[in-house]
Design a binder for these strands. Structure first.
Lengths: 339, 339
DNA sequence: CGTAATCTTCGAACCGGTTCGACGATGAGC
DNA sequence: GCTCATCGTCGAACCGGTTCGAAGATTACG
């Protein structure tokens, strides 16, 4: 393959001149610039990424650390990944996708070997083992998901506490007095899925403020357990008139469960979920939901990392940004029926 | 960060000796090797990937080209991606994930700039515009999906023709005489989704051999069109006793459609789908299905690309390998009932 | 004991870019 | 006509590895 030396030779200039002609970092005569450009076209020259990375210490690659955990609903993660990949490309970066179950080791590997200029962490746990590695790596990194300790990190997440309040308020406003919150599996919480308890605690507090009885149960993430657990919930709380679903798998399973029991929403049960719009469309979910906005969060995270990469001197304070929950209306909540 | 020069200095040897001590490509005395190793530990040395790539012309990165098309069911694609990423890591490779809608340009970019040692193409169309780029890049590449022209390419795919025959045979053996095949949307076929017509043509041929009347219709990929079209099919062919689903969205939608019509499978209708086991589990699909085996296909593709990368001299002929369809039994087919 | 073979290590070149300092040519100002 | 900037270009060094050829030390062998 052609090197910049070949280009220089064909254009009849030195390597450095060819380099400056291409980068525009020094003034070059129009004539030489044109000779270089045409040599580039003639030879089909493309710079060697490794050589450039060596010379500039910049790879123009972002590491994307995802973990696909047993009890998580994988399709929901895909939304984040796609958003991130697309924004990165817009900004001129490629994505190194890392799915290694040992995220800390993988992160150390790609930063120490300088394969990436920065990283995005998905699936962040409250006490995430990747965070110390990220901090000591010295590379820019952004998280999608709020850990317990954010010092030195840029963090973006949905305001899950506010989401919990919005969900409760909506049903309380409609007169519901007994509702059930189906969370993620207990596993997810134990592993440090802080978003689960952030939403739950706020929902419980708001329910108490609003005089609503809120039952909180763990859901499941895989069939057939999901449907079984939904049925168990409906059996256990026959007087409940509202259902909050903080669990994608449960949201996907609920329509069939309701139909099988001869129930319909919102007639028999008001339901509000928490998932992305895209997710709702893919699975034809008929429930109103708090938009988890994976594309927006991914976009924010990438922009921030790229800002830091491209302005290394700029020592802006780190940000922790919550996006306010938005309730996407799909008509699955209604005033409670008089008994 | 520490370089191999630092390691050499601390160990009191030359850079080349340090390099050989680490790579083991030349005999090095035990004593020196130990001094180098301890210097590495002391300094926390990790080789610079860019420098190594420059020196060896190997990046140990594989490009993964995915396209997320409007009318394709994205979650199905995720299975392939994960399988590929995991196998790649086992073999010591990282994955550069490329989702650029202009796949041909993106492929040219990452190969010309030598960011990757090889590539895997997903979502391959019959006349895929990425194939000429791949061929002229000279890099190893494997496809998951069969294009019209396979010359110079390693191709892995499910044997969709055999899958069509197996589906038809199964129902024919059970005495069904009129069945319907729901394919992917017409769009997908027009865009070159060859697997659709490979399965269909074989199914039609086998139906004719077996004396079965096979109606073939295009399905939809998004709600609510999917359910509407399924209802239309059931209305149009009231005498059909079997249904073949070559369409993930239809498979996800069918249980609700059946229940709404008061039908059940296999009592009223024998159903056979084509999707992965993981997919069936995620959506609790109750239908027997031909396993699309995304993990196996991904694994085969990665192994082949890595083989070619690591044995560049080895000019093995290119392979086109079909994996035989396996019918995963979920009890959704039964002998046709006497009228 | 001399010489050849083997083992271990080193120096230098190379991979393909970028960037700094310098140098000759040109033009402006006095 | 001379000095001083400015402009355009070049050579050389550098980024951090790998690898080839050679050289010195050691051992084996006749």
């Amino acid at each position: 393959m052609a090197t910049i030396g070949d280009v220089a030779r064909v254009a009849g200039v030195s390597r450095s001149t060819a380099s400056y002609a291409l980068s525009g970092k020094r003034a070059i005569s129009l004539e030489v610039r044109e000779r270089v450009d045409s040599a580039v076209r003639e030879l089909g020259y493309t710079p060697n990424a490794g050589a450039r990375a060596l010379a500039t210490s910049q790879t123009h690659v972002l590491g994307l650390l995802v973990q696909f955990l047993e009890d998580e609903f994988a399709p929901a993660m895909l939304q984040y990944m796609l958003g991130i990949s697309n924004v990165a490309r817009e900004l001129g970066y490629d994505i190194l996708m890392v799915t290694d179950p040992d995220g800390a080791r993988a992160l150390e590997r790609i930063t120490d070997s300088r394969m990436v200029d920065g990283v995005i962490l998905l699936n962040v746990a409250d006490d995430d083992v990747r965070l110390p590695v990220l901090r000591s790596s010295g590379r820019p990194g952004a998280l999608v998901g709020l850990p317990g300790d954010c010092t030195g990190l840029d963090v973006f997440d949905l305001d899950f506490a506010e989401a919990g309040r919005v969900m409760v308020d909506r049903l309380a406003d409609l007169g519901h007095r007994e509702i059930v919150l189906v969370s993620q599996p207990e596993h997810v919480v134990e592993r440090g899925g802080a978003y689960v308890w952030r939403l739950r605690d706020a929902a419980l507090a708001q329910a108490s403020v609003r005089g609503v009885e809120l039952h909180e149960v763990y859901g499941e993430s895989q069939q057939p357990a999901v449907s079984r657990s939904l049925n168990a919930v409906l059996d256990a709380f026959p007087a409940a008139t509202g259902l909050l679903l903080h669990n994608e798998a449960a949201a996907v399973a609920l329509p069939a469960v309701l139909r099988a029991r001869g129930l319909s929403s919102p007639h028999d049960l008001s339901v509000i979920g928490r998932y992305s719009d895209e997710f709702a469309r893919t699975f034809a979910l008929p429930f109103s939901s708090i938009d988890s906005a994976p594309d927006r969060l991914g976009r924010m995270a990438v922009r921030q990392v790229v800002r830091r990469i491209e302005n290394p001197k700029l020592h802006e304070p780190h940000v922790v940004r919550f996006i306010p929950p938005e309730l996407v209306e799909r008509g699955s909540s209604a005033p409670v029926r008089p008994v």
